[in-house]
Write a protein that binds this DNA or RNA. Structure first.
Lengths: 350, 350
DNA sequence: AAATATAGTTGGAACGTTCCAAATGTCGGC
DNA sequence: GCCGACATTTGGAACGTTCCAACTATATTT
């Protein structure tokens, strides 16, 4: 903790000019000292720093940013923080940004396009050095073009929008569900459902494709009703399982769009007296921390959300350093984590 | 979406001076228009706004803040975003702040005191108008005194630190666990454990006290080993249940420090082939959204985290308007939500 | 007709930095 | 005693706003 300022109190917060006066140098010198410039003699620098401490000086980043025509703020737009996946992503993001001396301007959209537009505009007014955007559903490519016209570096996370010319960090969704499905097949499952949205943009699309490809590759057909359309929430997961269990050609396991859908699925199974991993198999997607301590612990395709966040931040920082390099891209290779929620395909007890 | 700027392009982003020129007024007038001042004739204002749109003007809040010696940024310090309780809190907080035209500077400490000190200092440099701090464990009262010396309004959330002179938003922890415990007692339980930290600051203290008071009030004694010391995580919850079930005088239910501890408890019970609500009762604390779709759905003491966040934001905004009113305080009245994880006290199957 | 009030507009000095160009001081070599 | 080279330091004009005091009209009162 810094010492209390001891010098004579001015009526207002001290500025570099005050320090300059106290240390008998010019304010230019003070400015250079604060920037750790090697131009200044060590002795002088020490004297300046002493004066600054004595006066209780605090750097005014706003003023500096105005003059430098730059800032160290990164705007981060998240749409659903109540999904732990995004919370963990944000943690990784913020940690990395903080480590590099940046500060996070955070906003939450709740999937609302107008809110999204508003917060982006606000971040622009604050001169954010860069933006990290997890686009709300139905975000148009036009919005991205607009941001590009703002000339603020922007990185898209998780949900690809627009063309390939934007920096992007996400995960290999198709490969992920492919691996998930293969896992169930290897466990002996032949009748597998997919719980996700039917028309929910590219992420849903790819995850479903990974599922269908794995089924096809293994010579399995997807029977009517196994592609179950739900909202990607815990509630949706429950509904999905209800639907699955009511099917005439009942599946023995399900690939879930993401982990929270899977949680809902586990809950509904439990309510029916069924135990995931024994009576029915459930696989999630995301690898959020809660999965390890779900009931039962959840088999999932992990993309390590915190790490994805760090990578996203890293990409944006690279972009800031290299404004005109070709589009950057990071695709997390999802990894299968086998826990108890998946197991052999027995017959369901009646 | 605003129209593309159509006017002649300058080499640099347009400023109020450029608008002034285009609209044939002074920059003072432009400034007043941007502030919606009633001093300016409607006709003139319209002309100015037109010019601003045409040039693609974007307000420079940094410059304005420098001159006004104020800002619209609120610094928010959260220590554990991976706990959905805090994520939901943050959502409520941010929503309220955004509604009032403020922007959220968010930082994550991961319970690290040094990180906390660093991010607070950083927020000061950025001239945050106010701070919302959920103090990391072991935060000293001295730190708060220091912040007070900075003359930045600060609101403490969730964990009380320092004296009563700080604005605070939290919940009635003692009443919460009291109600939780009474609930189990009413269900017929007589042997109840408490899963929490033994020396973890005021929140733990109060929640434990609510438990002990309820037990005492109902003439029940707390036997050796029923106060179980764990870290307040999912992992801790599992360990706690393991410990509880191994006791010679085995409890039939447990009050958990918070919901994620309860989730761990549910997981461990499941692993042992026990079903919460039938074989053992579990009550959480916080009321995070996941609780409704846990396996089984979790009985909990809800403080409605999102609403708590909104209230916290509201308090801080009030403080900004009334810098010298007496300390503000909001105590959420926690509410018992009965779901399936608690039930009658049967005997445990051997 | 002068004085006063009112509405609308404006010049210019801040706000606290940065950074360029220029100034100063010191040293060695001639 | 002068020159250039180098190490340090500095004056002052920006950066894009706000806001006070002053100014110009025009209308109203005396």
């Amino acid at each position: 903790m810094p010492a209390q300022p001891t010098g004579k109190a001015l009526g207002r917060p001290p500025t570099i000019t005050d320090i300059a006066e106290a240390a008998h140098v010019s304010k230019s010198t003070v400015s250079l000292v604060l920037q750790d410039s090697p131009l200044i003699k060590a002795e002088t620098a020490a004297r300046v720093r002493e004066a600054a401490d004595a006066l209780g000086y605090v750097y005014n980043r706003g003023a500096a940013d105005l003059r430098r025509r730059a800032s160290n703020m990164i705007g981060t737009v998240i749409n659903d923080l109540t999904n732990p996946f995004f919370a963990e992503l944000l943690v990784g993001l913020e940690r990395r940004l903080a480590d590099d001396g940046y500060v996070t301007l955070m906003a939450h959209t709740g999937e609302n396009l107008q809110t999204q537009q508003r917060v982006l505009a606000s971040m622009r007014e604050y001169h954010a050095a860069g933006l990290i955007l997890c686009p709300a559903f139905d975000t148009s490519a036009a919005l991205l073009q607009q941001i590009r016209a703002w000339r603020i570096p922007v990185l898209i996370v998780v949900r690809p929008v627009g063309d390939e010319s934007f920096d992007y960090a996400g995960s290999d969704n198709e490969a992920g569900t492919f691996a998930a499905t293969e896992h169930l097949i290897e466990q002996g499952h032949r009748r597998i459902a997919f719980l996700g949205r039917v028309a929910g943009g590219p992420v849903y699309e790819l995850r479903r494709q990974g599922f269908t490809r794995a089924m096809r590759d293994h010579g399995l057909t997807i029977e009517d009703g196994w592609l179950i359309d739900i909202t990607p929430t815990r509630e949706g997961g429950r509904a999905g399982i209800r639907q699955a269990l009511d099917l005439r050609s009942r599946p023995t396991g399900a690939i879930c769009y993401n982990d929270i859908v899977a949680f809902g699925a586990l809950s509904e199974l439990g309510e029916r007296g069924l135990r995931a991993g024994r009576d029915f198999s459930v696989v999630g997607f995301d690898g959020i921390a809660d999965g390890a301590h779900a009931n039962p612990p959840l088999t999932t395709i992990s993309v390590d959300p915190a790490r994805l966040g760090e990578s996203a931040a890293r990409l944006l920082l690279t972009r800031l350093r290299e404004p005109s390099s070709p589009p950057l891209r990071y695709l997390a290779q999802p990894q299968l984590i086998v826990r108890q929620s998946s197991g052999g395909a027995g017959e369901l007890p009646e």
